[in-house]
């Protein structure tokens, strides 16, 4: 009796969540099995797995998958390593600590599109970008970042965007570190490096796991930065899965193939999540 009331009361939210998830998913699955090209309306016949075949054999597919994984892993490494280092540096009180913290965290509040525009036009532009100016003043040939190192440029932009998030989490975590433990280590003869290595890093395992998880969710679907800066090019050099799907759906008007790509992206996310949880998830349960 009691139980059925509980269920009854829970039902609306459960049903709503199910609808929320099931309808888009089943529509995507449905679209992925029919011919659905906006240029040929009305010819929506069942094609089986043909859309998947098209997507997987697309010349952009292999580069997109590898770019997605490279982007994900590089940005994760950069943000975690730099994040830990910077937060450890600004943990000790110093003059202007408050301002430095705010400055370090502020990029997080900038929209991805704006972020990409700033980097594209103010930093990496070969004529009036700051990098070009630095090269020029050193007497070097300025580099056209976006066309010479397109994926690297995207990685820099995305890292800049996500580093503040990592710092925010790590700085908070460092504040909960026990000072008596550090003092005990100090008396045991530990140097600053020893304390960092044997106390601070282990203390940060769990926040690192959290940062990696959350960033992964967003980094698998990076889109705005690529769209605004490189447009996925040159060729497929900076195309990731999200951008490839967009390409299929809106540049080639093929909703069927795009849906198949979407389902593949879901699959990839699950594979990544599986390995990720095995690698860092155990830190979450401690």
């Amino acid at each position: 009796m009691k139980r059925s009331i509980t269920r009854l009361l829970m039902a609306p939210s459960v049903i709503l969540l199910l609808i929320w998830m099931i309808i888009p998913l089943s529509m995507t699955i449905y679209f992925s099995t029919i011919r659905y090209n906006l240029l040929y309306p009305g010819q929506n016949n069942f094609v089986g797995l043909l859309n998947f075949e098209f997507f997987i054999t697309d010349p952009g597919f292999i580069p997109a998958v590898s770019n997605t994984l490279i982007l994900l892993s590089t940005v994760l490494i950069i943000t975690v390593v730099l994040g830990v280092a910077l937060s450890a540096l600004i943990d000790k009180p110093f003059f202007g600590q408050g301002i430095v913290r705010v400055l370090l965290i502020s990029p997080f509040f900038i929209m991805p599109t704006v972020n990409a525009l700033i980097w594209k036009n103010m930093m990496m532009n070969p004529v009036y970008g700051i990098f070009a100016w630095i090269s020029n003043s050193l007497g070097l040939e300025p580099i056209d970042w976006l066309s010479t190192y397109p994926l690297m440029s995207v990685i820099i932009m995305v890292s800049w965007q996500w580093l503040p998030f990592a710092i925010l989490v790590f700085v908070t975590a460092l504040q909960s570190q026990d000072t008596e433990q550090k003092e005990a280590a100090q008396m045991d003869g530990a140097t600053g490096w020893h304390i960092f290595r044997y106390l601070t890093i282990p203390h940060l395992y769990r926040p690192i796991a959290v940062v990696v998880m959350i960033e992964t969710i967003f980094l698998l679907a990076v889109f705005a930065e690529i769209f605004v800066s490189t447009g996925g090019g040159p060729g497929y050099d900076s195309t990731n899965l999200a951008y490839l799907i967009y390409n299929q759906a809106l540049l080639q008007y093929d909703v069927g193939v795009a849906s198949a790509g979407g389902l593949f992206a879901v699959l990839l996310a699950n594979i990544v999540a599986f390995f990720l949880i095995r690698a860092v998830g155990k830190n979450l349960t401690v």
Binding site: Y198, L199, H203
Partner: peptide, 9 residues
């Protein structure tokens, strides 16, 4: 120390 300050990891 009063809090023992053992190294937790």
């Amino acid at each position: 120390f009063q809090s023992y300050a053992l190294y937790p990891h």
